[in-house]
Amino acid sequence: MDFNDLAAFLAVARAGGFRDAARAGGISASGLSAAVGRLEAKLGVRLLHRTTRSVAPTEAGARLIERLAPALSDVEAALDVLNRFRDKPAGTLKLNVPAGVARVVLPSILSAFLKAYPDIRVEVVVEDSFVDVLSAGCDAGIRYDERLEQDMIAIPIGARRQRFATAAAPGYLAARGRPEHPSELLSHACLRAQFAGGALPIWEFERDGEVVRVDPSGPLLVKPAAAMDLIIGSAIDGLGVIHFYEDLLRPHLDQGSLEAVLEPWWQHFSGPFLYYPGRRNLPAPLRAFVDLVKEGAL
């Protein structure tokens, strides 16, 4: 059995399609299709259901994935031992992160890491939903503490204290007035963001030990990963009040295109964590990333 054909099948199944797997692996979609076809011919069973829009494992394919994924991980770990004989580790590090982290936390971190380790290639999968990073084919994830997977090692990464900021365009505030208490947002046009999984987070504020939660309505509802710039742009255009990560709104607040409202009520929250499986031998690229994060170099 050709090892490359097995790896190609697993890559296509994880990516949910030949084109996405080809982009991730730097292999042509036709080459992956041929590899899966050879594997199915040798095994005598169909492993993937193929349509013009999607690819999904058959029952036989799903059973093979259950046994194949750990085995290939063991092979990759065995090959990774060779990194000990290099001056610097090489290979691929695949991270699963939410959109806000990709925009605010990762740029400076990845710049420092890739300069330190030029032989490592980093793949970043941006997802706001809760995922099993191993099943998704990733080495590690970055999430905030309330969305961490269990039975994982988690270490702080990035700024340790962040805030949600509330703001609106000067023109909107001139026309509608400036709220002085969070409860007044119920009478304002508010621009909402929804998690990919469907949850609509409540806006939460805190001052002098008093916590206020509001569930306002407004003219626009978006999912952050798909339309983060849209909701910020809509606030700048004067469509309503936005409640979002301060780091994302800060440039517009400094420029004056947005004005802060309810700032004494802005709530702090802890920064994100890098999390990964607690196995004894980490792949060399992940070990290098973890070591730099722990050293505080990132």
Rank of each mutant, 00 (worst) to 15 (best):
R213I: 00
P182Y: 15
Y172S: 04
Q194Y: 07
N96K: 03
A56S: 15
F113L: 12
E180H: 03
H49S: 10
D145H: 08
A41V: 07
G233C: 04
E146D: 14
F113Q: 09
R84D: 12
S33K: 12
R23A: 09
F195N: 15
A99C: 11
V45H: 10
R280Q: 15
R53V: 09
F18H: 03
A288N: 13
A154I: 10
D151I: 06
R14C: 06
I242K: 01
T52A: 15
S111A: 07
P70N: 05
L68P: 04
R14S: 09
F9I: 09
L274W: 11
F273M: 08
R121Q: 12
E180Q: 10
A90R: 15
G238H: 04
A60C: 03
G44C: 04
L221S: 08
H268A: 15
F289V: 13
I65R: 06
H268P: 00
L114T: 15
L68Q: 05
Y144G: 04
R86K: 14
V75N: 01
F18C: 01
R14N: 14
N281R: 15
P285T: 09
A199N: 10
R207Q: 11
G25C: 07
L6S: 09
A60L: 08
A60N: 12
R38A: 08
G198H: 04
T166R: 03
S135V: 05
A116F: 03
A102R: 07
G137E: 02
A168F: 06
G17K: 02
A29L: 00
R287G: 12
Y276I: 14
D215R: 13
A169Q: 02
Y276G: 02
L292F: 12
V293K: 03
P264D: 02
Q194L: 14
R280V: 11
F289I: 14
F289G: 11
A288L: 10
V241R: 01
E180L: 05
D237P: 00
L110C: 13
D5F: 03
A112Q: 07
L173V: 13
